[in-house]
Design a protein around this nucleic acid. Structure first.
Lengths: 211, 211
DNA sequence: GTCTATAACTCGATAGAC
DNA sequence: GTCTATCGAGTTATAGAC
């Protein structure tokens, strides 16, 4: 953890035991996954005994599921608001990129956690973790079609536009260590580089979608 | 594994025991990671006994390292050739996107494997897995600068151009299940969507970088 | 609610027969 | 080389005192 901004995972000193356990589990599961995180380590970080984990959460599996649900449910409303917003299109894209990059840079482990969970345990994910209501991109697609009809955007498939934008927002943060190596940047330089992303992605996207 | 194309991981029926173990380990480690893959499962898939794994590879750790090295070393030459090529710039970009997407769609688990490994065990990665010579992007950067000077590209930071392109090539395949859900596509539709990426990314990129 | 102690289990690793 | 049997370390989970 070398970011200057703190992640969105609160860990107040004064919380209840149950909450402290949950926060510790949150941090470790998101970083290390279900197999990688150990109950002992979670207990240590929460400042309590291993037995209490079972007292409050019954099993590792159950604790993990609650954490996973919380991670998903915390991210969804933000994304939903961004993607379903009825703001004027150009503003919407700008806000989308700014907020999305902000979100990911505050929570660099979350996208990787979700992707890994989805790859390794798709059944559990669909049945017990994924909420009923997800962000619906139809608003975004309709807006793109309208802008194309008005001649404000070049003709293109809206799905690919969305995936392109999201890819450029998320991937560099997920692949930060890889990018650091290939570009030959030190710790300070990679952070500067990532800080430039908001500007660079917006510029890139608007050039790509304007007619 | 629902791709129509087979991954680049060969598993011939007639190979030696050592090779069969290696192939089984390759498949399982890449999909499940070091902690997630079990020696028993590797043995089962290779059609031999657990004890033989240790006979040939001494320990799980050593087997894993060999697999990880193989994965990296198989990917690097392709990427290196693409990024260091001295082809005319526009051809180079075209080839880069086509081959990169082809590579990732054949090996959808590899980027996630590398990223996860790099996040969880950076020390081992740098000391024992990463080869001495990596793809050097300096050629690419110089070409971008030259094209800008000639007026063939708009002024931009070459690093961000590269990261944008790579993001759009890799991320959709890594996040395939997530994209499938959000876009509401069935198995056939998501594959069609991913097959369109070569065309769509090229179009998007050229619009974004032309002056 | 919280702790200590320990049971129960998983899994990597080894011994030894063939 | 390959197998069966088993050990031993590390982990999850529980029992029971306070």
């Amino acid at each position: 953890m070398d970011n200057t901004t703190m992640p969105d995972n609160p860990s107040r000193e004064s919380d209840s035991t149950e909450q402290r356990i949950f926060d510790a589990a949150h941090e470790l599961f998101v970083q290390k996954g279900l197999d990688g995180a150990k109950m002992q380590e979670i207990a240590d970080r929460a400042g309590i005994n291993k037995a209490l984990l079972h007292y409050y959460y019954r099993s590792k599996e159950k604790l993990y599921e609650q954490v996973a649900r919380a991670v998903i449910n915390r991210a969804i409303p933000v994304v939903q608001e961004l993607i379903e917003s009825e703001d004027p299109f150009e503003e919407k894209i700008t806000r989308f990129i700014d907020f999305y990059i902000e979100l990911v840079s505050r929570n660099p482990f979350v996208p990787l956690f979700v992707i890994t969970e989805l790859n390794k345990h798709p059944d559990r994910f669909f049945e017990t973790i994924l909420p009923k209501h997800l962000p619906k991109p139809q608003v975004f697609f309709r807006q793109v079609e309208e802008e194309i009809a008005r001649g404000n955007l070049r003709p293109m498939k809206p799905q690919h536009a969305l995936v392109n934008i999201v890819s450029m927002c998320i991937f560099p943060f997920v692949a930060k260590p890889m990018i650091r190596i290939v570009l030959g940047l030190d710790q300070a330089e990679i952070n500067t580089f990532l800080a430039e992303r908001k500007t660079e992605v917006k510029e890139f996207v608007f050039r790509a979608i304007k007619p």
